[in-house]
Amino acid sequence: MIDLMDVHAGYGRIEVLRGVTLNVPRGTVTALLGPNGAGKSTLVKVLSGQLRSSSGHVHLGGVHVNDAAPDELARAGLCTIPEGRAIFPNLTVAENLRLMRGDPAVVYERFPKLKARQKQLAGSMSGGEQQMLAFSRALITDPAVLVIDELSMGLAPVIVAELYEVVKELASSGVTMLIVEQFAETASAVADQVVVMAHGEISADSDLATVYFGGTS
């Protein structure tokens, strides 16, 4: 479903992705792990159309999408949840959900906290609630492909667990997913395939403890 072939990309003269080849089969979940600066977020930007690759091929569902704009991809069924709090802080919770095109009832049922806060400005909620709201887009828009960048960043374990419950449900309902994470074990538990990235390339070494804590551990 997601096919990257020898993708190079970067900012200006600085190359971040140095030939990434990655395949996520339809209906499966791939966890992409790796240390900071490995190029994970750059990869997400290339997939979502925010950054044009300098060479290589990007296919989504068999369609060549190297030159597609982010909004075109989004309307075609790709749901990208970028890292950080991917919400509009100056809109209310209900307004954020209206922008996502879909029935908010699904979200309110899954995250009752958001229902209680629907009239509140999204930016005035806690980090965990903001991430729930951002993640709601994966629930409400019924995407064909879901790409999530650092869902657990800066969140307490309880909330991470709650969000990953939903990830599991979506996975079992057959959504193709690429989960980019630092929290290795949580993500690996859901994944059909675990891929480790380092220095802008897919690393052959898939033992995470080695990647994080060095060979001496």
Binding site: S152, P157, V160, E181, Q182, F183, A184, E185, T186, A187, L208, A209, Y212, F213, S217
Partner: peptide, 13 residues
């Protein structure tokens, strides 16, 4: 730090 359980958990989740 290396042998601290909480640190490994924070990183590996």
């Amino acid at each position: 730090i290396r042998s601290h359980e909480g640190v490994r958990e924070a990183y590996l989740g």
